[in-house]
């Protein structure tokens, strides 16, 4: 009897490494997505959950036989719960050299405000 075996390395799902930097106007998110092209990247926001899914394209040159392999073409997937301070309608994304940069702006109401003090005497 012949049984189907699943030894496909492409099936692995990888949590991409992510940095989040907080600024006054919002949050910058940097995500390592090596080997991902723009067309293979999907960013969705659903009820305050940000889902980033991407697929790395195969890196082999035509006719290449691998001798040593430490990384594969994989599926990247990561979910983030957005805080209520984030304005989900104005998220900007940019993919450059394998790094996805997302800017998550704060809602205007939650920005730190300076209060002017007037003096009357």
């Amino acid at each position: 009897m012949i049984e189907e075996t699943r030894t496909n390395k492409d099936m692995d799902e990888i949590d991409p490494a992510t940095d989040i930097v907080e600024t006054e106007n919002g949050f910058f998110m940097y995500m390592d997505l090596p080997g991902v092209k723009k067309k293979d990247l999907n960013i969705d926001v659903e009820e305050n959950v940000l889902v980033i899914a991407a697929k790395a394209t195969k890196q082999a040159v035509d006719g290449e036989i691998f001798i040593q392999q430490e990384f594969g073409s994989g599926d990247y997937r990561r979910r983030f719960n957005l805080a209520v301070v984030v304005d989900p309608d104005n998220i900007r994304a940019n993919l450059k050299n394998g790094v996805l940069e997302l800017f998550l702006p704060r809602k205007n109401a939650t920005k730190p405000r300076k209060i002017k003090v007037s003096q009357s005497d």
Binding site: L33, V61, F66, I67, F71
Partner: peptide, 24 residues
């Protein structure tokens, strides 16, 4: 594993070295 992760391959004419290094 060591950084950066490296894949190595060959065909008749060349050796290919792939290394994952996003943002560099």
């Amino acid at each position: 594993i060591a950084y950066p992760p490296v894949n190595m391959g060959e065909d008749n004419a060349n050796i290919y070295v792939h290394a994952e290094m996003p943002g560099i």
